Computed example of a mutant assay.
Amino acid sequence: MKSQSLDAVCVVAGTTIGAGMLGLPMAIGFLGFKVSMVLLLVMWALAFYTSLLLLEVNLQVGTGLNVNMMVKKVLGRWGQIIAVVCLGFLLYAVLVAYVTAMGGIIASALGVSGDAFSTGACSVGFTVVMAVIMFCGTNAIIRFNSLFFLSMLGAMAIAFATLSTTVDVNVLVNVAPDYSYLIGAVPVLFASFSFHFCIPSITSVVGTDTRQLVRIMFWGTLLPLLCYMVWLFLSLGSVPMDQIVNMSGSVDALIKSMCNGSVVIQTILSIFAAFALITSFFGVALSLFDLMAETLRRTNSAKDRIGTTLIVFVPVLVAALLAPGGFIAALAHAGAALAVICILLPCAMSYKLRSEAKAAARKLAYMTPGGNMGIATAAVCGVVILVANYV
């Protein structure tokens, strides 16, 4: 695989795998290991298919065009407004949550986590470093992302190898699924595979080689799937379900239970969480940067890049310092925005472009397999995920 393609795979996989992966056992563990595996496969297939739909649209209307302009060209002004509002809300909220979390992780590493001022200063320092990297350009971001992503995989591999000795297969097999948690788990699972908003940034760097782009989407989503499966195998096989129920959603409690007091394993998992946050941060920040630059018609000059960087990071930093809890709570509704951006809009745009191409007897540059039945099935899944956020 070419270096450029490998970097793009790291962007997709790094954006997909966030520190939220650590909380997956708390979110879907009540369904049992076997049901969780089936749901993971279904959500992966849905995410991969809809990413190909968005790739199809991007190649048709203009390689590298952001979701904002793609929707405007295909669905008109109102579609554009819906897309920009949903995507902007989602990306800003996620970045605020990440800045807050990284501030806490850095403060804890420095031994000042109990001091609100010091934790805020750590958030500021992290944001400034990320802003400088963002200003340096897409290629710099992709290279840094690849470095952190490979480091994250290394930390994950060491932690997984160590934890594998604690797995009890009987704990995995004997858990009876509690299907009352099924509806609530669906949006969480799909959110674990959300990376679609970075596709325009990838095509602007990689180009229009469809075979190469499809391979990037496949491997970039398959890696997170495998990581999620192994993590659920280790966590659900190490901690009995009655203990998970009593943890009240605390990831720290889960990790401590799995580590059996091992400071080394806790440290490795903390390093993994930090790298996972940073790699996901890069993908989200790059998407927001490109969205703002395109929406506000800013060029790639140094002066405009400085302005766009400030537009992206200043509101994020202010919100992280003044009201982190409110914005993190808003992430509970981010699943609805994801369903619109990652499923419903790609389905609508792809269907319209195909209909127009068929009427004009024009061949598309790339068409995702599955036909209209595939689009309809994905759209129904999108509606289910959208509704599940509020049930």
Rank of each mutant, 00 (worst) to 15 (best):
4 Q>M: 11
4 Q>E: 14
5 S>Q: 12
8 A>N: 02
12 V>P: 00
14 G>F: 05
14 G>R: 03
15 T>N: 10
17 I>Y: 03
18 G>V: 07
18 G>W: 04
21 M>I: 12
26 M>G: 08
40 L>W: 06
41 L>Q: 04
53 L>I: 00
60 Q>M: 06
60 Q>K: 08
68 N>S: 14
69 M>H: 13
70 M>A: 11
71 V>T: 15
71 V>M: 08
72 K>P: 01
74 V>A: 05
74 V>Y: 01
74 V>F: 04
78 W>H: 09
87 L>T: 09
88 G>N: 03
88 G>K: 02
89 F>R: 00
90 L>P: 01
93 A>E: 06
93 A>G: 08
95 L>W: 04
98 Y>E: 12
99 V>Y: 01
101 A>G: 08
102 M>N: 05
112 V>G: 05
115 D>Q: 11
120 G>C: 10
125 G>K: 06
127 T>S: 14
127 T>M: 04
132 V>I: 15
136 C>N: 13
139 N>I: 12
140 A>P: 05
142 I>G: 00
144 F>Y: 14
155 A>K: 03
155 A>I: 03
158 I>M: 06
160 F>S: 07
162 T>L: 15
164 S>Q: 11
165 T>P: 00
167 V>H: 10
169 V>Q: 13
169 V>K: 10
173 V>N: 13
177 P>T: 07
177 P>K: 05
177 P>D: 07
178 D>W: 07
180 S>W: 09
184 G>T: 04
188 V>R: 06
188 V>Y: 05
196 H>I: 10
202 I>N: 00
203 T>G: 09
209 D>W: 07
209 D>P: 08
212 Q>W: 02
212 Q>C: 13
217 M>S: 09
221 T>S: 15
225 L>V: 06
227 C>Y: 02
234 L>W: 04
237 G>I: 03
237 G>A: 10
246 N>E: 15
247 M>F: 15
251 V>D: 07
252 D>S: 15
255 I>L: 15
256 K>D: 13
258 M>P: 06
259 C>V: 14
264 V>L: 14
269 L>F: 11
272 F>M: 13
273 A>E: 12
274 A>H: 05
278 I>D: 01
279 T>Q: 05
281 F>S: 02
283 G>Q: 04
288 L>Y: 12
289 F>W: 08
290 D>S: 14
294 E>N: 13
297 R>D: 10
297 R>Q: 11
298 R>Y: 14
301 S>M: 07
301 S>H: 11
302 A>E: 14
304 D>P: 08
307 G>D: 07
309 T>F: 10
309 T>L: 07
309 T>C: 11
311 I>E: 10
312 V>P: 03
316 V>C: 10
317 L>H: 05
318 V>F: 09
321 L>C: 07
324 P>I: 04
328 I>G: 08
329 A>E: 13
329 A>T: 12
330 A>W: 09
330 A>H: 10
341 I>H: 01
341 I>F: 04
345 L>D: 00
345 L>R: 02
345 L>A: 02
347 C>H: 00
348 A>I: 02
349 M>T: 03
359 A>M: 14
374 G>S: 00
379 A>L: 08
385 I>D: 00
386 L>E: 03
388 A>T: 06
391 V>A: 13
391 V>C: 12
